[in-house]
Design a protein around this nucleic acid. Structure first.
Lengths: 134, 134
DNA sequence: CTTGACCCTGTAGGTGCTACGGGGTGGATA
DNA sequence: TATCCACCCCGTAGCACCTACAGGGTCAAG
Protein backbone atom coordinates (compact mmCIF):
# COMPACT_ATOMS: atom_id res chain seq x y z
CA UNK A 1 0.00 0.00 0.00
CA UNK A 2 1.53 3.27 -1.04
CA UNK A 3 0.19 6.71 -0.31
CA UNK A 4 0.78 10.09 -1.79
CA UNK A 5 1.41 13.00 0.50
CA UNK A 6 -2.18 14.22 0.34
CA UNK A 7 -3.49 10.84 1.41
CA UNK A 8 -0.98 10.60 4.23
CA UNK A 9 -2.07 14.08 5.26
CA UNK A 10 -5.72 13.07 5.39
CA UNK A 11 -5.01 9.86 7.27
CA UNK A 12 -2.97 11.60 9.94
CA UNK A 13 -4.48 15.05 10.10
CA UNK A 14 -1.07 16.64 9.50
CA UNK A 15 -0.94 19.35 6.83
CA UNK A 16 1.00 18.60 3.68
CA UNK A 17 3.33 21.53 4.25
CA UNK A 18 3.97 20.33 7.77
CA UNK A 19 4.85 16.85 6.54
CA UNK A 20 7.36 18.35 4.14
CA UNK A 21 8.64 20.56 6.93
CA UNK A 22 9.18 17.53 9.19
CA UNK A 23 11.06 15.88 6.38
CA UNK A 24 13.20 18.95 5.84
CA UNK A 25 14.26 19.16 9.46
CA UNK A 26 14.98 15.46 9.58
CA UNK A 27 12.13 14.50 11.87
CA UNK A 28 10.58 12.26 9.24
CA UNK A 29 12.77 10.15 6.98
CA UNK A 30 12.95 10.98 3.29
CA UNK A 31 10.38 8.86 1.49
CA UNK A 32 10.94 7.09 -1.79
CA UNK A 33 9.60 8.74 -4.94
CA UNK A 34 7.56 7.49 -7.82
CA UNK A 35 8.60 8.11 -11.42
CA UNK A 36 7.01 11.55 -11.53
CA UNK A 37 8.78 12.64 -8.37
CA UNK A 38 5.83 12.33 -6.02
CA UNK A 39 6.58 11.15 -2.48
CA UNK A 40 5.42 7.61 -1.73
CA UNK A 41 4.59 6.54 1.81
CA UNK A 42 3.73 3.23 3.43
CA UNK A 43 1.97 2.09 6.59
CA UNK A 44 4.98 2.79 8.75
CA UNK A 45 4.86 6.46 7.75
CA UNK A 46 1.27 6.69 8.96
CA UNK A 47 2.27 5.20 12.27
CA UNK A 48 5.27 7.46 12.70
CA UNK A 49 3.46 10.59 11.71
CA UNK A 50 0.59 9.79 14.04
CA UNK A 51 3.18 9.41 16.76
CA UNK A 52 4.50 12.87 16.02
CA UNK A 53 1.03 14.38 15.87
CA UNK A 54 -0.06 12.85 19.17
CA UNK A 55 3.15 13.98 20.77
CA UNK A 56 2.52 17.53 19.56
CA UNK A 57 -1.06 17.41 20.78
CA UNK A 58 0.29 16.52 24.19
CA UNK A 59 2.58 19.51 24.04
CA UNK A 60 5.89 17.76 23.47
CA UNK A 61 8.38 19.83 21.55
CA UNK A 62 9.72 18.54 18.28
CA UNK A 63 13.02 18.04 20.08
CA UNK A 64 11.28 15.83 22.64
CA UNK A 65 9.64 13.85 19.90
CA UNK A 66 12.89 13.53 18.03
CA UNK A 67 14.40 12.11 21.20
CA UNK A 68 11.57 9.66 21.69
CA UNK A 69 11.81 8.49 18.09
CA UNK A 70 15.54 7.98 18.44
CA UNK A 71 14.91 5.82 21.48
CA UNK A 72 12.37 3.79 19.56
CA UNK A 73 14.58 3.47 16.50
CA UNK A 74 17.65 2.61 18.50
CA UNK A 75 15.63 -0.22 19.97
CA UNK A 76 17.05 0.58 23.38
CA UNK A 77 14.09 2.55 24.65
CA UNK A 78 13.41 1.68 28.24
CA UNK A 79 10.26 2.57 30.07
CA UNK A 80 12.34 4.54 32.49
CA UNK A 81 13.75 6.88 29.88
CA UNK A 82 10.38 7.50 28.31
CA UNK A 83 8.78 8.03 31.68
CA UNK A 84 11.45 10.55 32.64
CA UNK A 85 10.86 12.61 29.51
CA UNK A 86 7.12 12.46 30.10
CA UNK A 87 7.28 13.50 33.72
CA UNK A 88 9.66 16.34 32.91
CA UNK A 89 7.13 17.54 30.41
CA UNK A 90 4.36 17.31 33.01
CA UNK A 91 6.43 19.60 35.21
CA UNK A 92 6.80 22.13 32.41
CA UNK A 93 3.06 22.03 31.94
CA UNK A 94 2.49 22.52 35.65
CA UNK A 95 4.64 25.64 35.48
CA UNK A 96 2.65 27.01 32.58
CA UNK A 97 -0.60 26.22 34.34
CA UNK A 98 0.56 28.15 37.37
CA UNK A 99 1.62 31.14 35.25
CA UNK A 100 -1.64 31.24 33.36
CA UNK A 101 -3.64 30.84 36.54
CA UNK A 102 -1.89 33.81 38.09
CA UNK A 103 -2.49 35.88 34.97
CA UNK A 104 -6.15 35.03 35.01
CA UNK A 105 -6.47 35.99 38.66
CA UNK A 106 -4.88 39.37 38.11
CA UNK A 107 -6.84 40.07 34.96
CA UNK A 108 -10.13 39.17 36.57
CA UNK A 109 -9.32 41.33 39.58
CA UNK A 110 -8.59 44.25 37.25
CA UNK A 111 -11.73 43.71 35.23
CA UNK A 112 -13.69 43.47 38.43
CA UNK A 113 -12.63 46.94 39.51
CA UNK A 114 -13.85 48.29 36.25
CA UNK A 115 -17.52 49.00 35.88
CA UNK A 116 -17.09 49.19 32.15
CA UNK A 117 -18.79 52.53 31.66
CA UNK A 118 -18.11 55.23 29.15
CA UNK A 119 -15.66 57.02 31.37
CA UNK A 120 -12.10 57.59 30.26
CA UNK A 121 -10.42 56.85 33.59
CA UNK A 122 -10.02 53.12 33.47
CA UNK A 123 -8.73 51.22 36.50
CA UNK A 124 -7.28 48.56 34.24
CA UNK A 125 -5.10 51.05 32.41
CA UNK A 126 -4.11 52.64 35.66
CA UNK A 127 -3.04 49.30 37.04
CA UNK A 128 -0.99 48.61 33.96
CA UNK A 129 0.68 52.01 34.20
CA UNK A 130 1.19 52.18 37.91
CA UNK A 131 0.91 48.60 39.04
CA UNK A 132 3.44 46.19 40.54
CA UNK A 133 7.14 46.45 39.90
CA UNK A 134 9.22 43.74 38.35
CA UNK B 1 15.76 63.93 33.66
CA UNK B 2 17.13 62.05 30.70
CA UNK B 3 18.13 58.43 30.62
CA UNK B 4 20.27 56.37 28.37
CA UNK B 5 18.98 53.05 27.11
CA UNK B 6 20.85 51.06 29.73
CA UNK B 7 19.33 53.11 32.54
CA UNK B 8 15.87 52.77 31.05
CA UNK B 9 16.48 49.06 30.81
CA UNK B 10 17.41 48.80 34.46
CA UNK B 11 14.47 50.91 35.60
CA UNK B 12 11.95 48.86 33.69
CA UNK B 13 13.48 45.41 33.62
CA UNK B 14 13.25 45.33 29.83
CA UNK B 15 16.37 44.24 27.99
CA UNK B 16 18.16 46.80 25.84
CA UNK B 17 17.71 44.72 22.71
CA UNK B 18 14.04 44.39 23.46
CA UNK B 19 13.68 48.16 23.84
CA UNK B 20 15.32 48.66 20.46
CA UNK B 21 13.11 45.93 19.06
CA UNK B 22 9.98 47.67 20.32
CA UNK B 23 11.19 50.86 18.73
CA UNK B 24 11.85 49.10 15.45
CA UNK B 25 8.37 47.63 15.25
CA UNK B 26 6.81 50.96 16.17
CA UNK B 27 5.56 49.95 19.59
CA UNK B 28 7.71 52.57 21.29
CA UNK B 29 8.19 55.99 19.73
CA UNK B 30 11.59 56.96 18.43
CA UNK B 31 13.47 58.79 21.15
CA UNK B 32 15.56 61.89 20.66
CA UNK B 33 19.32 61.50 20.45
CA UNK B 34 22.21 63.19 22.15
CA UNK B 35 25.18 64.52 20.19
CA UNK B 36 26.93 61.17 20.12
CA UNK B 37 23.87 59.42 18.78
CA UNK B 38 22.81 57.78 22.03
CA UNK B 39 19.08 57.46 22.65
CA UNK B 40 17.71 59.80 25.31
CA UNK B 41 14.61 58.92 27.29
CA UNK B 42 12.43 60.76 29.78
CA UNK B 43 9.95 59.82 32.50
CA UNK B 44 7.18 59.15 30.04
CA UNK B 45 9.29 56.44 28.43
CA UNK B 46 9.65 54.68 31.76
CA UNK B 47 5.90 54.76 32.23
CA UNK B 48 5.14 53.53 28.76
CA UNK B 49 7.69 50.77 28.84
CA UNK B 50 6.46 49.60 32.20
CA UNK B 51 3.00 49.48 30.68
CA UNK B 52 4.27 47.25 27.91
CA UNK B 53 6.18 45.02 30.30
CA UNK B 54 3.22 44.54 32.62
CA UNK B 55 0.99 43.83 29.67
CA UNK B 56 3.42 41.19 28.46
CA UNK B 57 3.67 39.67 31.94
CA UNK B 58 -0.10 39.32 31.89
CA UNK B 59 0.14 37.52 28.58
CA UNK B 60 -1.18 40.25 26.29
CA UNK B 61 0.25 40.05 22.79
CA UNK B 62 2.20 43.00 21.42
CA UNK B 63 -0.77 43.59 19.12
CA UNK B 64 -3.07 43.83 22.15
CA UNK B 65 -0.70 46.23 23.82
CA UNK B 66 -0.41 48.30 20.68
CA UNK B 67 -4.18 48.53 20.65
CA UNK B 68 -4.34 49.57 24.28
CA UNK B 69 -1.67 52.21 23.75
CA UNK B 70 -3.54 53.57 20.77
CA UNK B 71 -6.64 53.89 22.91
CA UNK B 72 -4.64 55.70 25.56
CA UNK B 73 -2.92 57.96 23.06
CA UNK B 74 -6.09 58.74 21.16
CA UNK B 75 -7.52 59.92 24.45
CA UNK B 76 -10.76 58.15 23.65
CA UNK B 77 -10.12 55.05 25.70
CA UNK B 78 -13.26 54.03 27.50
CA UNK B 79 -13.41 51.55 30.30
CA UNK B 80 -15.67 49.42 28.18
CA UNK B 81 -13.17 48.99 25.37
CA UNK B 82 -10.35 48.15 27.72
CA UNK B 83 -12.53 45.76 29.65
CA UNK B 84 -13.55 43.99 26.47
CA UNK B 85 -9.96 43.43 25.42
CA UNK B 86 -9.11 42.20 28.88
CA UNK B 87 -12.01 39.78 29.12
CA UNK B 88 -11.29 38.45 25.66
CA UNK B 89 -7.79 37.78 26.83
CA UNK B 90 -9.09 36.01 29.91
CA UNK B 91 -11.07 33.73 27.64
CA UNK B 92 -7.97 32.91 25.62
CA UNK B 93 -6.20 32.07 28.82
CA UNK B 94 -9.07 29.88 29.95
CA UNK B 95 -8.78 27.96 26.70
CA UNK B 96 -5.09 27.44 27.20
CA UNK B 97 -5.65 26.37 30.79
CA UNK B 98 -8.16 23.78 29.63
CA UNK B 99 -5.78 22.48 26.95
CA UNK B 100 -2.88 22.19 29.33
CA UNK B 101 -5.04 20.55 31.96
CA UNK B 102 -6.15 17.92 29.48
CA UNK B 103 -2.56 17.32 28.44
CA UNK B 104 -1.51 16.87 32.00
CA UNK B 105 -4.29 14.39 32.68
CA UNK B 106 -3.38 12.26 29.70
CA UNK B 107 0.33 12.40 30.40
CA UNK B 108 -0.13 11.42 34.02
CA UNK B 109 -2.42 8.58 33.05
CA UNK B 110 0.22 7.33 30.63
CA UNK B 111 3.01 7.64 33.14
CA UNK B 112 0.86 5.85 35.65
CA UNK B 113 0.52 2.79 33.44
CA UNK B 114 4.25 2.63 33.16
CA UNK B 115 6.15 1.01 35.99
CA UNK B 116 9.31 2.57 34.71
CA UNK B 117 11.38 -0.58 34.62
CA UNK B 118 14.14 -1.59 32.29
CA UNK B 119 11.80 -3.29 29.87
CA UNK B 120 11.62 -2.19 26.26
CA UNK B 121 7.84 -2.40 25.82
CA UNK B 122 6.68 0.95 27.09
CA UNK B 123 2.97 1.69 27.48
CA UNK B 124 3.64 5.37 26.88
CA UNK B 125 5.17 4.72 23.49
CA UNK B 126 2.38 2.32 22.67
CA UNK B 127 -0.21 4.92 23.51
CA UNK B 128 1.53 7.47 21.34
CA UNK B 129 1.72 5.03 18.45
CA UNK B 130 -1.72 3.51 18.74
CA UNK B 131 -3.66 5.99 20.82
CA UNK B 132 -6.61 8.23 20.03
CA UNK B 133 -7.35 9.52 16.58
CA UNK B 134 -7.56 13.14 15.65
C1' DC C 1 -7.80 20.59 -25.23
C1' DT C 2 -8.82 22.52 -21.26
C1' DT C 3 -10.04 22.16 -16.53
C1' DG C 4 -9.06 20.77 -12.01
C1' DA C 5 -7.00 18.26 -8.38
C1' DC C 6 -3.00 17.04 -7.05
C1' DC C 7 2.14 17.28 -6.67
C1' DC C 8 6.98 19.72 -6.79
C1' DT C 9 10.62 23.35 -5.03
C1' DG C 10 12.19 27.30 -2.65
C1' DT C 11 11.55 31.25 -0.01
C1' DA C 12 9.34 34.60 2.98
C1' DG C 13 6.37 35.60 6.76
C1' DG C 14 4.60 35.39 11.56
C1' DT C 15 5.60 35.98 17.04
C1' DG C 16 8.69 37.96 20.43
C1' DC C 17 12.45 38.24 21.23
C1' DT C 18 17.90 37.00 21.74
C1' DA C 19 22.52 36.77 20.13
C1' DC C 20 26.22 38.07 17.43
C1' DG C 21 29.55 40.69 14.75
C1' DG C 22 31.90 44.78 14.06
C1' DG C 23 32.43 49.16 15.39
C1' DG C 24 32.24 54.05 18.07
C1' DT C 25 32.25 56.97 22.78
C1' DG C 26 33.77 58.63 27.01
C1' DG C 27 35.73 58.45 31.49
C1' DA C 28 39.16 56.34 34.67
C1' DT C 29 43.52 54.34 35.28
C1' DA C 30 48.70 53.13 34.55
C1' DT D 1 49.42 59.35 26.37
C1' DA D 2 48.03 54.71 25.88
C1' DT D 3 44.82 51.55 27.08
C1' DC D 4 41.11 49.57 29.33
C1' DC D 5 36.32 49.16 30.26
C1' DA D 6 31.50 49.90 30.29
C1' DC D 7 28.47 51.56 27.53
C1' DC D 8 26.35 52.74 23.08
C1' DC D 9 25.42 52.20 17.81
C1' DC D 10 23.64 49.30 13.66
C1' DG D 11 22.23 45.35 11.03
C1' DT D 12 21.44 40.65 10.53
C1' DA D 13 20.50 35.97 11.72
C1' DG D 14 18.72 32.65 14.71
C1' DC D 15 15.14 30.34 17.85
C1' DA D 16 10.28 27.11 17.57
C1' DC D 17 6.82 25.63 14.58
C1' DC D 18 4.81 26.10 11.27
C1' DT D 19 1.94 28.69 7.19
C1' DA D 20 1.62 30.89 2.89
C1' DC D 21 2.90 32.06 -1.13
C1' DA D 22 5.04 31.98 -6.17
C1' DG D 23 5.79 29.57 -10.11
C1' DG D 24 5.75 25.43 -12.05
C1' DG D 25 4.81 20.07 -13.44
C1' DT D 26 1.44 15.66 -13.80
C1' DC D 27 -2.47 13.20 -14.81
C1' DA D 28 -7.23 11.78 -15.42
C1' DA D 29 -11.86 13.25 -16.78
C1' DG D 30 -15.02 15.79 -19.66
Amino acid sequence: MTLRIGELSKLTGVHIETIRYYERIGLAPEPSRSANGYRRYGDDSVKRLNFVRRGRELGFTLADIRGLLRLVDGGDATCDQVRTITLQHVEDIAGKLADLGRMRTVLLAMADECEGGDIPECPILETLFEGGNH
